[in-house]
Simulated scan of single mutants.
Amino acid sequence: MPPDISLFTLSLLCLAALAAGWVDAVVGGGGLLLLPALLVGLPQVPTAFILGTNKSAAIVGTSAAAVTYLRKAPIDVGIALRIGVAAMAGSLGGAFFAAGINSEVLRPLIMAVLLGVLAFVLFRPAFGTAVAASGPVSRQRVLAAVLIAGLGIGFYDGLIGPGTGAFLVVALVAVLHMDLVTSSATAKVVNVCTNIGALTMFALQGTVLWQLGGLLALFNLVGGTVGARMALKRGAGFVRGVLVLVVIVLLCKLAYDQWFAA
């Protein structure tokens, strides 16, 4: 635990962890809330420790959401685990390179991808609302999901993190033709794997504030459980609305960092 952290700052971080767990369970992108909160609340802490502590909290809420979804949502566990193993490998690689990341280069690329995602979702009203056709998924589609949602997005999660869940949801709908609720459920299983990979690397590098991460994890756990139950109850339309909102907020945050932040 940082020795000079105030009770007020700690309380705000706990609220951010609670909200991040809810957002992450519904559609992903909880890091959009918790990671900036940690950066603002703990300006004296090195970035590597912020990233590691964020993962130590996020993995608990994501795991709780995944368990809730597994009990009630129609998830193909075999496909989810295949993508998850690839995502774990990708996140290990991303976390390894996180210390040398140049955000000035990556930020515009991420913004371009988010703009494409937003346009795709907005101009296709039926995106993620139709139930996929029954029957086995082709090997080509599963392989594409392993490469894109697994290795690709897994690497991004270990490298930076915020928005990973939203990217996973969109990728799974686009590649495997899932509905948004099933995609969110599958994304949680994959996201648990990316968090395990990234947290393992951060732990090996000794860049995790475990006491603070453990406290934030409790609030993230509550948020994740509540968010998953709401997504299951309210359906694809609710998830779609939250997805659009998260992508817009993430775009605004990245644009501010790019052009206005000191």
Rank of each mutant, 00 (worst) to 15 (best):
G224W: 06
S134P: 01
L18I: 01
A262M: 06
L122E: 13
V242G: 08
D179F: 11
L147G: 03
V105Y: 05
L147S: 02
I83N: 08
A95M: 01
G30K: 00
I148G: 07
L251M: 06
M178Y: 09
T164F: 01
G197I: 02
R71C: 10
G116F: 15
A198Y: 15
P36A: 07
F167Q: 04
V26K: 03
G31P: 01
C14W: 01
L180T: 06
V26E: 07
S11E: 07
F97C: 12
G152Q: 01
L212P: 05
A89L: 08
Q211I: 02
G163S: 11
V181Y: 11
T53A: 02
G227W: 02
C252S: 09
G227E: 04
G100S: 09
A231N: 10
D157Y: 00
L221D: 07
Q205E: 14
L13V: 02
G135K: 08
A80L: 06
I196Y: 15
A187L: 11
S138W: 03
A98M: 00
V117C: 10
A98S: 02
A80P: 05
D4K: 11
F123T: 14
P46W: 01
L18E: 00
G227F: 05
L251V: 06
A87C: 13
K233M: 10
L38K: 04
L143C: 13
A198L: 15
G84C: 04
L212H: 04
L215A: 03
L34A: 11
I50P: 05
V189K: 11
P43C: 03
K233I: 07
I75V: 14
L122A: 08
G116V: 10
G224K: 06
F123S: 10
M230A: 13
G227C: 03
L143G: 14
I75L: 12
G214P: 15
G237V: 04
I83L: 10
A130R: 15
Y69S: 12
A262K: 11
A112N: 07
L106K: 04
V26W: 08
F167K: 05
L35K: 09
T225Q: 15
P3T: 09
F155E: 03
Q140C: 12
L12R: 04
G52I: 09
L42V: 10
A187Y: 13
Q140N: 13
G165T: 00
R139I: 14
P3S: 10
A144E: 08
C14A: 08
V23L: 13
L109F: 15
L38M: 12
K72P: 15
